[in-house]
Design a protein around this nucleic acid. Structure first.
Lengths: 117, 117
DNA sequence: CAACTTGTACGACGAGCGTCGTACAATGCT
DNA sequence: AGCATTGTACGACGCTCGTCGTACAAGTTG
């Protein structure tokens, strides 16, 4: 193999372009909040398929797209899979404390927890 | 005057019933975030008309209703006017630090500020 | 009483959201 | 090569959202 193994041509907003309303809207959906909560539990990269979500594949793609366009996650292509990571530093720089506070609130009040794989 | 001057028959969710997704959704609208930011600046009660909002009266009523049903504000009838206050304590008890963090993020990144009256 | 103020109720409209199914592209594996 | 895996693209569907205009209710004030 001589060509580039990864594509990395996925649009992401810059740190200074993150909008609060987009972030809050993204996290106001229970499924997306689940995804972000899962991502926040580890430092490793998660594939889209490593979540037990109560929606189909295409809906899952949609939610990851919303999260990416709001600047919450970074997506990196690797082979057929797409690796997702939380943009912790960017979020912390732009909206200090916001992510942790929301995740804490979610953990305190969530009736159900998703299952990682 | 011998009769009751205020009605106080407006439905509000109890503290323990506040849902995170509803709160985040309520605050993901710029107009509603403006309203909450204004309310947070003072301890006094604000009438619905004391905001300079870029929407009509009926839209304003709608936004206050969303905020009330999400548990962000308390509305109290007094004569023809309705007095609004932020439910600071309830929010702090249910979602510690959430309101302040969001308001801080809004203040840091907001391009425009509303005008109080 | 009549006029005004403050805000709600209701219906309408266009836009967007969350969901799905099917089809397809790209990669990995046998 | 052929097949399986992973995820996207696209269209469709109901539903909700934000907005508005008009009409109306409840107080306040002349």
């Amino acid at each position: 193999m001589s060509g580039p193994p990864t594509t990395e041509q996925i649009a992401h907003p810059a740190r200074d372009e993150l909008e609060l309303s987009a972030v809050l809207h993204a996290l106001s959906d229970p499924v997306r909040l689940m995804i972000v909560a899962e991502l926040s539990k580890g430092e490793r990269e998660y594939t889209c398929g490593s979540f037990e979500l109560p929606v189909t594949k295409s809906t899952c793609t949609h939610h990851f797209k919303v999260l990416r366009e709001a600047g919450l996650i970074k997506q990196r292509q690797q082979g057929t899979t797409r690796l997702n990571t939380l943009r912790r530093q960017d979020l912390e720089a732009r909206f200090p404390g916001l992510l942790d506070t929301i995740l804490q609130a979610a953990a305190d009040t969530a009736p159900l927890q998703p299952q990682p794989v």
